[in-house]
Amino acid sequence: MDHRSIGELMSRNVVSVRLDTPFKEIARALSDDGISAVPVLDDEGCPVGVVSEADLLHKAANRSDMSGRTPLPHLEAWERARAEGVVAAEIMSAPAICARPQWTVVEAARLMADRHVKRLPVVDETDRLLGIVSRSDLLRVFLRRDSAIHEEISRDILTRTLRLAPSAVMADVEEGQVALHGAVDDEHTVAVLLRLCGSVDGVVAVSEDLKHPPEETGRTESAGRRGTS
């Protein structure tokens, strides 16, 4: 099966900053380019952290409210140091959580969910920045046409992988939802079909109405009767 890689989905024109980039220059970059975060690069072009709008807002939240209505938030020492920072190295969230270009959408999505981040810098084998992938980039796989999903399931899964006859199992695809119907040899084949179809890029859900012979229980029962005296 063909899975789109992170290298295909990532944005290559990445706005980045250096460790010594001043606070206001970072804020200007976010505003001018309509983005919500930038990777911070070292002298070798490797991401060492990320500065997001949330990181910059720490400074606003740490300032006194002249009206007196809102008390200063309680911050740990490291949080206060970041709130008082003036360059990227002092403000950024570190270390940078990165992806590789050969990763699948599943791998990147799991890392984002596990680390609670919205984007991943993408780096090569030397850890130099290649691009950046966001949650919206990953969601682009669900824009895949139903016809392309149907073709992959019919060609790669039903015919090449499981070697099923064209008339044995058919797949209907509508809005990314796959409905399988037909007949297979056993329940195991049903489970394999559901798993494989669910892993196809662009699939939202898989349902089945597949007929198969019932489990053979006669052999076990007769063996049990022969064992009694």
Rank of each mutant, 00 (worst) to 15 (best):
M1S: 14
H3W: 10
R4L: 14
R4W: 05
I6S: 00
I6R: 02
M10E: 01
S11K: 12
R12D: 08
V14A: 08
V14W: 09
V15M: 09
S16P: 04
S16K: 09
V17M: 05
T21H: 00
P22D: 03
E25P: 00
I26P: 04
A29L: 12
I35M: 09
S36G: 15
V38K: 00
S52R: 06
K59M: 07
K59H: 11
A60E: 12
D65R: 01
S67V: 03
S67D: 08
G68R: 04
G68E: 03
R69D: 15
T70F: 06
P73T: 03
L75C: 01
E76T: 15
E76R: 13
A77R: 15
A81M: 13
A81Y: 08
V87Q: 07
I91V: 13
M92D: 07
M92T: 05
I97G: 02
C98K: 04
V106K: 12
A108W: 00
A108T: 00
M112L: 07
H116F: 10
P121R: 00
E125P: 01
E125K: 10
G131A: 08
R135G: 12
D137E: 06
F142S: 10
L143V: 05
D146Y: 07
A148C: 06
H150S: 15
H150A: 15
D156F: 12
D156W: 07
D156H: 13
T159Q: 15
T159E: 13
L162A: 04
V169R: 00
D172S: 15
V173E: 06
E174A: 14
H181Y: 13
H181K: 11
G182E: 02
T189Q: 11
T189V: 10
V190I: 00
V192P: 00
L196F: 12
G198S: 07
V200A: 06
V203S: 10
V203I: 11
V206K: 00
S207R: 14
E208N: 13
D209N: 10
E221L: 15
A223Y: 13
G224K: 09
R226S: 13
